[in-house]
Design a protein around this nucleic acid. Structure first.
Lengths: 158, 158
DNA sequence: GGAAATTGTTTACTAACTTAACGATATGAT
DNA sequence: ATCATATCGTTAAGTTAGTAAACAATTTCC
């Protein structure tokens, strides 16, 4: 039978106790998992490496040259005002440039520079290595399953 | 054969184009999925409802009464300085209280009030309903699989 | 041609942290 | 016993990653 003491302190062994209620929530587990992956990403890319969102933006500019900032913001799921600093950083590093689009003087198409393209390919290799290492306790199939399940959640985007 | 034009603009159809490189990364998908779940959590709990981290803290205090702030911070994976505002909010709402621990005057054990316990049970029901609704396109088995896979990532905690 | 929408940008704000320091207290080594 | 060390909760200041609102310039829609 369990103890009946009203003043059960239970402060011993905190580190080993599970937290049943929280552990059942997908949201809580997503957050905790993301914190780990993101921290390892930053460690892998180093002090002057890309932050995750900057890497993502560069990836899209390399893959979709001439994307507009509005289009890029939409793809990343953030406000276009929030994209300005990211584009500033990438342009400041000489990895992309803002170019005029003939026919619409409001928009500035984003194109990767040669340096931007090679930097991206290098960074992508580092990111792949980071995920391979960090997630080496997941099989290839498990990783594919995880992507599928996360994709089902992401189906609620927009 | 694909187009050979060097100046291929490709700005049309942005909304429908996939982003192959990014989509293969677990970290990117985790982030995008978490943003959706977290936003729906906040919508479900409403204007004056708990923020996710406050809900998590209350959950742990209810389940582990007399936990210390340091212990709680460790469980949540954040610095104890960051917990002060969370505990302030919960105490300010009359849901938990800081109590003296005889034998160690440095620590303040956290205990839920009666109101805190009932508020938690109610909030937990709302959170469960939010996840059930949002994740209704995942089967029970898929949700269990997802928790297992996220748990494998979380095995890197500490 | 005039109203409405869109683009990139700035400014101001917020949330959710971190790091470093602090005084108070407790613990451990000798 | 005392001195060094560690721990507790807290504050203060800084960082990161955003959002919301407004703006001029430009384009699109009747």
């Amino acid at each position: 039978m369990a103890s009946l003491r009203k003043t059960d302190r239970r402060t011993e062994d905190e580190a080993h106790i599970e937290a049943p209620d929280l552990e059942e929530f997908i949201g809580y587990n997503l957050k905790r998992a993301y914190v780990i992956v993101q921290a390892d990403f930053r460690r892998a890319l180093g002090e002057d490496g890309f932050a995750p969102r900057v890497f993502s933006a560069l990836s899209l500019v390399v893959q979709y040259p001439n994307v507009t900032q509005s289009g890029l913001a939409r793809m990343l799921g953030i406000e276009r005002s929030g994209l300005v600093a990211i584009v500033d950083e990438l342009e400041g590093r000489g990895l992309i440039k803002r170019t005029n689009v003939p026919g619409d003087r409001r928009v500035q198409a984003l194109v990767p520079t040669a340096k931007g393209k090679t930097s991206y390919v290098e960074a992508r290799a580092v990111v792949r290595a980071h995920e391979d290492r960090l997630l080496s306790n997941l099989s290839t199939e498990e990783k594919a399953t995880l992507l599928t399940l996360l994709g089902k959640i992401r189906s609620h985007e927009d």
